[in-house]
Design a binder for these strands. Structure first.
Length: 381
DNA sequence: CGGCTTTGACCAGCGC
DNA sequence: GCGCTGGTCAAAGCCG
C-alpha cells in the first residue's frame, strides 16, 4: 500500500520536472506524503488492533453470558428433579476472575470476608489459581454454621501445630499432612471429596509444556497401568504453594502425546501466561460445576477440542484432549484465522503472543508448535 | 553454592 | 491382615 502511494507520489505534478532546484522541493513533498501515509497506516493498524480487542472481549462476554444462561436453566432443572446432590454448590476458582458463580457464594464470601475483618479482601477476591471448592448449602444459617466450624477446627489445628514438638520424621510428615489438609479444607471445605483435577492431553515432543508456572520435580514413578514413567511436579513459585501436576506419556503407541494433570490452588499471584492457562482450565473445570456430562453440553463448551469428564476415584476430573480436534458440524467453513476461542473467566482478553500453551487457538494443532522446552521425563527415547 | 533432578525408600489407601 | 500401587520424601548427585 505504501509502496503504491510512494510510486504515485514520485511525480506529483505529472512527471514534469523542468528545473533541478524543483527536485528537492518535490522530494520533500514526496517524503512528506510518504510520512503521512505511514502515519495513516499506523492509525489503521491501531484501529484494527482495537477492533480485534473489542471483538475478543465481546466474544468472551457473549460466551460467558450464554454459559450463565445455560447454567441457570440447568439449575432450574436440578431443582425440579431434586437430585441427591441438590444443595451442593460447587464453585471454582481458576485464573483471575471476579465472576460470581452464584449469589449464595457471594454471601459466603461476604461472610468469610467479615470473619477475616476484611483484611486482604481484595487480594482474596482476585485470588489467582487453579482451585476448586465444594460447599454444601442447606440454608443460610447452616452455611454460616459450617463455615464457623471450619474456622474453629482450623484454629484448633493451628494451635496444636504451634504447641506440637515435632520429634520424628513421621511427626514431620504428619504435621505437613495436616497443613496440607488445612489447605485442602480451606479450598474444598469438604475433605471427603478429593480435589478436582484438570487433565490436559497435549501432542507434544516435550513433556513439560511451559504453562507459565515454575515447577520443581519431586518424584517419578512408573505406574503399572502405563510402563512409561510419570513425573510429579510441585509449584515452586511459592514455598507453600500446594499446586501439583503430574506429567505422563499417554502410551507407547502414542508417544508424542503427554497428559498433564493439575491439582490444587495457587496461593500466589500468577504470571500472565499462567493466568491464561488457568483461565483455559477453568472453563474445563466449569463443566463439573455445571454438573453436565452429556457430550452435547460438553460440545457446547468446547466445540473445537475433544474432552471428557470423569469422577472416578472420587477425583472429579476434566480431560481436555488437544490431540483430537473436534470441529463442529454446524460450522463447516469456520475461518481458520479467526481469533480467540475464549473459555476464559479471565477479565482480560488474551492478546499474548508469548510461547505458552494457550487455549485461544481454534485449531488444536496450532499450539503444539508453541510449547517451550524446560525439562524432560527421563526414560524417554 | 544454591537450586534442581534422580532414585530408592517409605507410607497410606485400597482391594482381596 | 496382607500385598499391591500410587504418591511423597529426602539424600545424593549434577549443573550453571
Amino acid at each position: 500500500m505504501i509502496k503504491e502511494e510512494t510510486n504515485s507520489c514520485v511525480h506529483p505534478f505529472g512527471g514534469v520536472m523542468a528545473e533541478p532546484d524543483h527536485k528537492e522541493v518535490e522530494l520533500d513533498a514526496a517524503k512528506a506524503k510518504v510520512e503521512k501515509v505511514r502515519e495513516e497506516n499506523e492509525k489503521l493498524k491501531l484501529l484494527l488492533s482495537t477492533i480485534l480487542t473489542d471483538y475478543n472481549s465481546l466474544q468472551m462476554y457473549v460466551s460467558n453470558f450464554v454459559r450463565q444462561q445455560h447454567e441457570a436453566s440447568k439449575e432450574l432443572d436440578s431443582n425440579e428433579y431434586d437430585h441427591d446432590d441438590s444443595g451442593v454448590d460447587i464453585s471454582l476458582r481458576l485464573g483471575r476472575s471476579e465472576i460470581k458463580i452464584s449469589k449464595k457464594e457471594e454471601e459466603v464470601e461476604k461472610i468469610s470476608l467479615d470473619n477475616e475483618n476484611k483484611v486482604g479482601s481484595e487480594k482474596k477476591r482476585y485470588a489467582l489459581g487453579l482451585g476448586f471448592r465444594i460447599q454444601s448449602f442447606e440454608d443460610a444459617n447452616s452455611t454460616d454454621h459450617s463455615m464457623k466450624l471450619g474456622y474453629t477446627s482450623r484454629d484448633v489445628k493451628n494451635g496444636n501445630a504451634e504447641d506440637k514438638c515435632v520429634l520424628s520424621k513421621k511427626d514431620l510428615k504428619t504435621a505437613r499432612n495436616e497443613d496440607q489438609q488445612d489447605v485442602l479444607e480451606e479450598h474444598n471445605e469438604q475433605p471427603s471429596l478429593k480435589k478436582t483435577r484438570v487433565c490436559v492431553k497435549a501432542p507434544c515432543e516435550d513433556p513439560s509444556i511451559n504453562d507459565g508456572c515454575q515447577w520443581r520435580k519431586y518424584g517419578q514413578k512408573t505406574a503399572k497401568a502405563n510402563p512409561l514413567p510419570r513425573a510429579y511436579y510441585r509449584c515452586s513459585m511459592s514455598s507453600n504453594c500446594p499446586v501439583r501436576k503430574q506429567v505422563q506419556r499417554c502410551g507407547e503407541d502414542d508417544t508424542s502425546a503427554y497428559m498433564t494433570t493439575y491439582e490444587g490452588t495457587h496461593d500466589h499471584p500468577l504470571p500472565m501466561e499462567a493466568t491464561h492457562m488457568a483461565a483455559g482450565t477453568s472453563a474445563a473445570a466449569s463443566l463439573l460445576q455445571s454438573g453436565s456430562s452429556s457430550s452435547a453440553s460438553l460440545s457446547y463448551y468446547f466445540p473445537f477440542h475433544h474432552f471428557s469428564v470423569s469422577t472416578t476415584n472420587a477425583h472429579p476430573t476434566v480431560t481436555l484432549d488437544l490431540t483430537r480436534p473436534n470441529y463442529p458440524n454446524h460450522l463447516p467453513n469456520y475461518p481458520l484465522s479467526s481469533s480467540s476461542l475464549s473459555f476464559s473467566s479471565s477479565d482480560r482478553p488474551s492478546m499474548s503472543n508469548s510461547r505458552t500453551l494457550s487455549f485461544n487457538s481454534l485449531i488444536s494443532q496450532a499450539p503444539l508448535n508453541t510449547y517451550s522446552h524446560q525439562t524432560k521425563l527421563s526414560g524417554q527415547p
